[in-house]
């Protein structure tokens, strides 16, 4: 436990030391909020976007670099398991996304008078599931793509279309029919749905179940395919 806490704290520090992560998870969503003049329906989507940027945009490259630069191997020569480093990376991404989400939510309520979330507990559960879900996809990418540059690139190539088609960066209403249909099959879509449900207070079980299923499947696939070297 001491080792996991220490690894997570270190990973979090490294994440906040990275200017790109800081910008895309903190400042960028706020900029979008200002451009949208605080449109209330947009906030849950932006929360999903923050999580996706961390879990799919940043995590695959970081994990692949730990493997490529033999950081994982060095940890395997200590009494802890290198799995703990991956767990630390996951927790750090979730916490960083939470920080970005809290800043966004507070700004939207204080500056733009957005109506506060109706069901905070459900919103928190939806956030946690959505955030862990995107990280599980990030681990699948890091497991399948071997080198750092490739993993970063594939992470971005998966993440960017997804945040647009899943209704995270722009509302799905604004999309043409054909693109909206693609969105129906994207894993981030139930994430946006669950967050919106939590915000509006309409408890819907379906997106939560889907998210849980994706987490279980993603983790299983990543665990089966991951190479330590």
């Amino acid at each position: 436990m001491k080792a996991l806490t220490s690894l997570t704290a270190t990973e979090l520090r490294l994440l906040f030391r990275d200017p790109a992560s800081l910008f895309f998870m903190m400042a960028f969503p706020l900029m979008l909020l200002v451009l949208k003049r605080g449109e209330s329906g947009a906030v849950p989507g932006y929360i999903a976007m923050i999580a996706a940027i961390g879990g799919m945009g940043a995590l695959p490259g970081t994990v692949a670099s730990y493997r490529e630069r033999k950081v994982l191997k060095r940890l395997a020569a200590t009494p802890i398991s290198p799995v703990l480093l991956l767990a630390g990376q996951l927790v750090a991404q979730v916490v960083a996304a939470l920080a970005g989400a809290v800043v966004l939510v507070v700004a939207s309520i204080v500056v733009f008078d957005v109506e506060a979330p109706r069901n905070v507990l459900l919103l928190a559960a939806a956030f946690l599931l959505c955030s862990v879900m995107v990280c599980s996809l990030g681990f699948v990418i890091a497991a399948v793509v071997r080198n750092t540059r490739g993993a970063t690139l594939i992470g971005m190539l998966v993440m960017f279309p997804m945040i647009f088609l899943a209704g995270a960066a722009v509302p799905r209403k604004a999309l043409p029919d054909s693109l909206r249909q693609i969105g129906d099959f994207l894993p981030l879509t139930p994430g946006v749905q669950a967050l919106s449900d939590g915000w509006s207070g309409t408890a819907a079980v379906f997106p939560i179940v889907i998210l849980t299923g994706i987490i279980v499947a993603g983790t299983a696939i990543a665990a089966a395919l991951f190479r330590w070297e």
Partner: peptide, 26 residues
């Protein structure tokens, strides 16, 4: 152990690395 060509995350500081590795040992 000191392994051939092993390394640490680029942005970790010397003191952080030592403190983190220190936490792995009983």
């Amino acid at each position: 152990a000191q392994l051939q060509e092993s390394s640490l995350p680029e942005r970790i500081k010397v003191a952080e690395a030592l403190r983190m590795f220190g936490s792995f040992y009983q």
